[in-house]
Simulated assay, not measured.
Amino acid sequence: MTRVQESAGELLRRWRGHRRMTQLDLANRAEVSTRHVSFLETGRAKPTRAMLLRLGEHLDIPLRDRNALLLAAGFAPAFPEHTLSDVPMAVVADAIRTILDAHAPMPALVVDRHWNLVDANDTVALLTDGAAHWLLEPPVNVLRLSLHPDGMAPRITNLGQWRAHVLHRLDHQIDATGDAELRRLRAELADYPGGIDAAGPGPALVVPLRVRVGEHDLAFLSTTTVFGTPLDVSVSELAIETFFPADGATAEYLAAQHPRSDH
């Protein structure tokens, strides 16, 4: 079935609805009239490139979708898209590699907007050891790898709690982006066994990842880093996930796996 291409006005209306904003809300934020917003959405007025970029910013539309909005109106995309191997991305690629290497012996990885693995430091292999080979073949989806019964799931000792955390985080990401691929991924993950334990074993400020590595039970706290004010589609969609020891035993284990030499 051929999908009908949405017009710029239809895209604006859809994103405004997704953001739960009225035409008055958007008009006030963009400092234009409600009548103008209405005319743009219905196609009675032709938007300028500058106006689409302005509305896209106030609607907090992802850069990839702002390009789609411009294309729908007959304009060229405003934001480039590169891979990390492209020459313009050399500075970004070097920065990512520096962060990953400096974070050792603690695990760190980089994912794209769909949670596909872009890069990782060597310590991540400790967590994924024992996973089925097919889950480790590119493109590796780190959420699928962590929750699949053939992946890390059998070694995650707080699986129900971690599943609840992952699905809740995906819900927020889907709400922000409206990404259909993320919706499909969430539906797949929700069908995996493992249960849901939103409360966990006791009071906690953050949800740890507790995973068995050999005879050791390790616990990690995770943080997410994104690039500030990105002007490239790919850069805007990258996230660096870093893991820190949640207890002394985990810190000692990691230090033993990666002893630092004295200079």
Rank of each mutant, 00 (worst) to 15 (best):
A131H: 04
D112A: 13
A125V: 11
T128M: 03
P105L: 13
A102L: 12
L126N: 08
L117Y: 04
A102F: 09
A108Q: 09
W115T: 09
V124W: 12
E137M: 05
L145V: 05
H133V: 15
H103W: 06
T123G: 04
H133F: 09
P107A: 14
L145H: 05
D122I: 05
H114Q: 12
N116P: 04
N141H: 00
D119P: 01
L109A: 15
L117N: 06
L147H: 02
N141T: 00
D119T: 04
L135D: 10
V111N: 02
W115K: 08
W134H: 15
D122W: 06
L147E: 02
L136D: 00
D119E: 08
P149R: 08
N116D: 14
T123I: 04
V111D: 01
N121H: 03
P139Q: 01
L109V: 15
L117I: 07
A104R: 15
L109R: 14
V142W: 01
A102N: 12
R144A: 06
V110S: 08
H133E: 15
L127S: 06
D122A: 13
P139E: 01
A120S: 09
V124T: 13
A120R: 07
A125F: 07
N121I: 06
G130R: 11
L126F: 08
H148F: 03
E137T: 09
P139F: 00
V118E: 03
L117M: 08
H148C: 09
G130I: 12
H133R: 14
A131D: 04
H103E: 10
L136K: 08
A104V: 15
P149F: 10
G151I: 08
D129I: 04
V111I: 14
L109E: 14
R113C: 02
T123M: 09
R113V: 02
H103R: 06
E137A: 10
H148S: 13
R144P: 01
P149S: 10
G130A: 13
V111R: 02
A131Q: 07
A120I: 05
E137K: 10
A102E: 10
M106G: 14
L127D: 05
W134C: 10
W134V: 14
L143W: 03
L109H: 15
M106A: 15
G130V: 12
D112M: 10
G130E: 07
A132E: 14
N141R: 02
L117G: 06
L127N: 04
P107Q: 13
N141V: 01
H133Q: 14
L127G: 07
V111Y: 01
L147C: 03
D129N: 11
D150M: 11
P138Q: 05
L147Q: 02
L136P: 00
G151A: 11
D150N: 12
T128V: 11
A120M: 09
D129L: 10
A131R: 07
S146T: 14
H133Y: 11
V140Y: 00
V118Y: 01
P139S: 01
A120L: 02
G151M: 09
L136N: 05
V142E: 04
L126W: 09
G130S: 12
V110N: 07
L127W: 07
N116I: 04
A131C: 15
M152T: 12
W134M: 10
L145T: 06
A104C: 15
